Simulated assay, not measured.
Amino acid sequence: MSMKRKTWIQIFLHIILIAGLIIVVLPMVYMISTSLKPNGALYEYPPRFLPALDEVTLENYKYVLGQGKFYRNFLNSMCVSVASVLIAAEIASALGYVIARFDFPGKNFLFGFIVLTMIVPGLTLIVPQYELAVKLRVINSLAGLVPFYAAWTIPYSTFMIKGFVEGIPRELDEATYMDGGSVFTVFGRIIIPLAKPGIASVSIFNFLTAWEEFPWANTVLNDNLKRTMPIAISGFFGEHQFTQWGYVFALSVFSLLPILIVFICCQKFFVAGLTSGSVKG
């Protein structure tokens, strides 16, 4: 391939990447710019993508922060997301370790069933899940979110962590057994430390899933003080006879901050875990 052709290919690829970046970034830029506009400016014609400097205001953020329920909704989302991540990480790590290291009857069937559950849309199970939540008496409670969120993310987490565990040399397990260690010793001192990147990557994904989930939380929770951030944001739609888009986007910016912080801090684990787990799995 000639140098000229390679150059044109690189230029074409860069154009595609830049176009993709613009498509991804523009909605976020519009969200931030809209949150800095007064609500009246949202209906001006012709519309402007960015506000004028003399129009920039923090009133939308002040209003949102002045709502006492905002802090409660934010705390609810944080507690639910963290609890779901911890439960899913613990169960998926143990399950991934067992499937990757041991042979037992029904192993292939179990792993195939786990993979199968990954392709079932969550909304198709909302009716039986609701009936189960009623029987467990967790309706209108944060306890009605955590076990279901964990159950949704365990199959994917197990699939990824299994691939990571298979990349850990078995000689380390055998050396631990020779030193008198048990299965639990291998799991706690060998597998968990070496599989941290994989566990961290799926935990980031699980956190995003729990933090952003709306349909199930809206179905289970009725009390405003027990609702999560996505439901709190939806509460501004149609309020006062029309949607206060400035409030909606200001609250959306606050909701986005934990996600950005988690991803920026753990980005290297996320990339490493996805690539390694997908290849080994």
Rank of each mutant, 00 (worst) to 15 (best):
L53G: 00
S35L: 10
K162Q: 11
L142Y: 04
T124C: 10
G163C: 06
C79K: 12
N39S: 11
Y63H: 09
H14A: 14
K280M: 13
G181I: 07
F249Y: 06
V183C: 11
A83C: 12
A83R: 02
L13A: 14
T7N: 08
K226H: 04
L13M: 14
Y247S: 13
I204S: 06
R101F: 10
T34I: 04
P51V: 00
V98S: 09
V85E: 06
Y61C: 10
L257S: 03
S203G: 01
L221I: 14
N60C: 05
S33N: 11
L75F: 15
P51L: 00
Y63N: 09
N73T: 10
G167E: 10
M118F: 12
A151G: 13
A272K: 07
F187H: 06
W152I: 15
I192A: 05
E212N: 15
V220M: 07
N218E: 07
V25L: 14
S81M: 06
V183M: 15
E212P: 00
G246K: 00
N140C: 08
R5H: 10
S278L: 14
T34G: 02
S278K: 04
S201I: 13
G277R: 03
V25D: 08
I99Q: 01
T185E: 03
F242P: 01
Q10C: 11
T57V: 03
A88L: 07
D179H: 05
K69G: 11
G68P: 02
T158C: 08
S93I: 08
Y30V: 10
L110E: 05
Y247V: 13
V146Q: 03
A175N: 10
T243H: 01
I87S: 06
A195L: 03
D179F: 06
E166H: 04
G144L: 06
L123M: 14
N224I: 15
L58M: 15
G167N: 07
I139N: 07
I23G: 01
S35I: 07
D173C: 09
Y43F: 12
K37A: 04
L50K: 01
I161F: 02
N39D: 13
T243P: 00
P193R: 04
V202L: 06
G40C: 00
L145G: 08
T34N: 04
E55M: 00
F254S: 10
K162A: 05
G277P: 02
V165N: 00
I204H: 02
S84H: 05
S93E: 07
K280R: 14
A272E: 14
P38I: 09
Q244K: 09
L132R: 04
I99C: 04
I91T: 08
V80N: 01
S2P: 05
A250Q: 03
L36K: 02
I87K: 02
G273F: 04
E166G: 12
I261T: 10
L65F: 14
F159L: 11
I114Y: 00
P121S: 11
A232P: 05
E59S: 12
D179A: 12
D173A: 11
I16L: 14
E55S: 01
A217Q: 10
G188Q: 07
